[in-house]
Design a protein around this nucleic acid. Sequence first.
DNA 1: CCACGGCGTGAAGGTGCCGTGAAGCCCGTT
DNA 2: AACGGGCTTCACGGCACCTTCACGCCGTGG
Lengths: 229, 229
Amino acid sequence: MTAPAVLVVDDEPQIRRALAVNLAARGYTVHQAADGRAALRAASAHHPDAVVLDLGLPDIDGIDVVRGLRGWTTVPIVILSVRDGERDKVEALDAGADDYVTKPFGMDELLARLRAALRRATPDETAEPVVETAAFTIDLAAHTVVRDGRPVHLTPTEWGLVEVLVRNPGKLVTREVVLRTVWGEGFEDESGYLRVHMASVRRKLEADPAHPAHFLTEPRMGYRFLPDP
Amino acid sequence: MTAPAVLVVDDEPQIRRALAVNLAARGYTVHQAADGRAALRAASAHHPDAVVLDLGLPDIDGIDVVRGLRGWTTVPIVILSVRDGERDKVEALDAGADDYVTKPFGMDELLARLRAALRRATPDETAEPVVETAAFTIDLAAHTVVRDGRPVHLTPTEWGLVEVLVRNPGKLVTREVVLRTVWGEGFEDESGYLRVHMASVRRKLEADPAHPAHFLTEPRMGYRFLPDP
DNA sequence: CCACGGCGTGAAGGTGCCGTGAAGCCCGTT
DNA sequence: AACGGGCTTCACGGCACCTTCACGCCGTGG
């Protein structure tokens, strides 16, 4: 996921602003609303990835905003409230809220709870598991390589090489790092292994193994994976 | 879902007991553990639907218990702690906890937070629990397998294998993950079990067990379930 | 122009992993 | 007590994979 969007709902401008600044500083896209009607409208307009919602709104009761959202979306909702009573918390959580933070709140804690809520909502999109080139497609999560529509089988060693290089696209990876990553401590001098297994990788993935386009050798240094330009 | 199972981890017997009584009264199945090692063991043995975890354990730091769990499961974790500092909360939540409640806590609030955690964790029981291939049909929700119109009986171990693989269609599942999921913590080296029970699964489900079309072996790595193309 | 070192390539050898059948054991049922 | 299902354990054959080695190519430096 890139730049999660967060909808901040609070009628107090200074709190709204403090939240917006802190969220924006951490790379979130921020939308704001000052009352319940605006919140519902903004949610349906922007489809945020999370909602931070103050319960004490001037027009609609915050609980009803939760219910309104839950009618059509499962977006994580973190409640902000001055009310510290158990009754309020239970009611909000059972209405469908995901978390409940009492004002005054610590910004770090709120952000951590927001991260937790976002993490749960995005099952496994965390990494970017798919790397695609003109010649082949590598799915790091599924451990699969597809070439010309057909799956290509890689041995564990070959997969280790591909993985360490593909996870550092465009960057030079030294022999030492490759050997330690794939073979482990104590194999830093076995550069012969690299030649043999790298040849195997290129034979399986490169269109012209003798003149590789993606798995390049940097003489005396290491190797480099080059995605499509 | 019927009768969610909750693992309660706390070293103070009276708190553990209070939680267990309240949870049981509301229809939950309750498992208990008094320290971190027991918690990890119980989690892998019972596969609870949620974990209530006290941070102040006698043996392992609660944070490390969270990390230990997160290594192989996404079960919701609600932290209980006497520590009210922001640092503690942020650390626990970022380690993978889902919620953080400070002692002394209100039972109603804790239960509400637990309900919220459970609600989030089970959105997909109705999603698509049925996996169909040309050879057989697997209904994950109903725990049934049908082949050629006739039901196929799987033993608990066989079902565990089928389930963990089918829930990750197309993805490589390492031996370590399979063993921990089906047998639990401490069985990561018993790859012999895998061979035997996998052969059993293939004998029951594959048209040609010697040349499986759906339950594939990735030598030295793990196994992979391949749906129909 | 030649020597040399690094790299790619192909093949041979051995090791450990995987599939398979069967025997032994635990445990709940009859 | 006898029975049977299911899990564990073992032995064995086959094979995928890693290692090792020899050789040829290419670039660089003398």
